[in-house]
Design a protein around this nucleic acid. Structure first.
Lengths: 201, 201, 201, 201
DNA sequence: ATTTAAACGAGACGGTACGTCGCGTCTTTTT
DNA sequence: AAAAAGACGCGACGTACCGTCTCGTTTAAAT
């Protein structure tokens, strides 16, 4: 688990109890009252931790939530491999939809993303620690599919990822509901068709 | 121009001068210091307007900026029609990229979108006043293309829009730079290929 | 009825209805919610009168209340004359106690007096229109008593008035309850004794 | 020095520097610009103290000024004892006149008294912390005079105090100037005569 | 086992912005 | 023409969090 700030003191004497209490309190507050009610003061009060302790280890409340969410997401991060790339992508996108819709992690992740728009450092952390590692799994799986001939060897994989993830973030950014499974299936199908069909002359 | 709040008093006596000064000040502050420095106090001070007057007509600073941005966007809103749907979509997406990158409107629109994640009412307003009307133009143009045989009659237009807009909002949400024109071209090409290629058996 | 401000427009076209509604509303508000809740806005709203109209005829809310109170007090202003100066003063002081304790006029008069401490113009008006005329009646009655030999001819009448009124205003200024009738009787007796006893050698 | 509000947090960690700066700033503002210009905002700005800190320890600006005034008054609070009660009371009343006329404390005390008329809690505090303790000194001195035969043993001491203080507060309440020393002398003489002369049969 | 230095809880502090209220002025609409 | 209705610039209100900063008090490493 990587802290988004490098300026913290040596973690040797760090109290694991306080760390856990802080992350838990942050997630709970976010789930119960929405991201707007997540303040350092409220986290400190709920966790029975002093504000100073929070500021010692995290630069912003976004960083706290990022730690909390990352810890949860990473632990459920196996990428499926049934041999059929279409099916696996569908499963993967479905998992991302579930993340957004999740009662406990949804509000937290949405909150983090809202902070990303103002906080460059947090943006970098979210990409480096959360998104890029998971997208790397997608690339890996897609490259395997190319070797098995399920995808053309010259397919534009980064664009494919953008087309797959994009609609989800589009809906997220505009406050719209996530797509249902059927819609996800159609989406994946269209992206695969785009990758497989030849360029127009 | 519709105010995002329906709870404002009757606009009969409203001072157009104050309204203009407020919108201008909000945009300027956003462009100069970033969305974080846009506060109702700062807008009021810069515009020479009382806070009370702002609160009378707008519920949040996001609503102020939405009005300001909408006014600008709508006035530049002709959808291109060269007869070639691919070219026109490329132009349209390019315009959206330019909106995000614009010095004056970019920070404002990004700021609004950040607020959307916490403010349901603002989310509705952004969709109703800004996004949906403009997407409607895309649909209209696409339907025209269908009639001319440039697109199959059963093309999934809403999905197409999500695939076109999605990557932009994906990058936006994660704090990444907008795609360059070449990338836009490739994107549009892929989407069109997806629409035109037959379903797999 | 004298308006405390001389800068009002010609009173020829003045609406008596608005004037009455304003004074009544001011008194009611004061009696119901205390002087603190008496604001020009509240008076205007309650009276169904525009703020502008109030400002046209009165400079402050204190002036409004002074008009209202004066109108009431002056109409009950007969000074008693039983032939016994002690009895008459007791009655008179008792009436002043009743003014302070009155449900309708007490809060108003106390409110006016609180404003007097900040508003020199109002102070002058209170003295000129309310206090001095009534004290004049006391002097007149006392001079009559001197002629009848009930008071020594060299009695210090202004000091006597201060000693009679003083304790009431002392209690008023410190937020204490008004004296009961027995206490008033003792007070008057002491003052009369002071006036009648010879100076010490 | 007692704070007029009992609802303050434990004073263990209280910053004496902030407390002093606040009281000083309040007195200065009051002396310079009058009580009307004393606002919590202005005190905070002048004292270099946050508004929150002021609100943490005092409920109103009146309470702040009361603390400031009390601190000054109490420290100059010896009751004179020359052996002659008439002389001592004259001195004492003269000191009270000086308080009202004082450049630095006069406006503050007058301001407090104006607030007393709207604020029951402050009224209690003014009486308990300022007036009653000082009046107690008067009683004490008077009782001593009774023992020495300078005053009759059955003299109505509370009434005497009201007759002594009353005229001062009467003038204060009606915005009139304090009496000059000669007038004070006459006043004291009259009160003493009243106490010493026998009741009328 | 005792020292000792850090991390800790608690929370006061100087700030900034919030959203509200009432002021006194000014403008628009109605009568 | 007046009066109602009420928008306006202004400024203070009291509150909420911010991030910083002492204060004792644990508590875990180093003696």
């Amino acid at each position: 688990m990587i802290t988004s700030s490098g300026s913290a003191p040596s973690p040797r004497r760090r109290s694991e109890k306080s760390r856990r209490a802080t992350l838990t309190a942050a997630l709970e507050l976010c789930a119960e009252n929405g991201y707007g009610k997540v303040t350092i003061e409220a986290i400190a009060a709920r966790a029975g931790v002093s504000k100073k302790t929070i500021y010692r280890w995290w630069p912003t409340k976004g960083a706290v939530l990022l730690d909390a969410v990352t810890e949860l997401v990473v632990s459920h991060s196996e990428f499926p491999d049934t041999g059929d790339i279409d099916v696996d992508l569908r499963t993967h996108i479905g998992m991302l939809v579930n993340l957004f819709n999740s009662t406990v992690m949804g509000p937290a992740y949405r909150g983090i993303l809202s902070q990303v728009l103002h906080d460059e450092q947090l943006a970098r952390a979210v990409n480096d620690e959360l998104v890029i590692p998971r997208v790397a799994l997608v690339y890996e799986r897609m490259r395997g599919a190319q070797e098995q001939g399920q995808l053309p060897p010259d397919a534009d994989l980064p664009l494919a990822v953008e087309m797959l993830y994009g609609p989800l973030y589009y809906r997220h950014a505009l406050g719209r509901p996530m797509p249902d499974p059927e819609h996800v299936e159609t989406l994946v199908a269209h992206v695969m068709r785009a990758l497989r069909s030849p360029e127009r002359s």
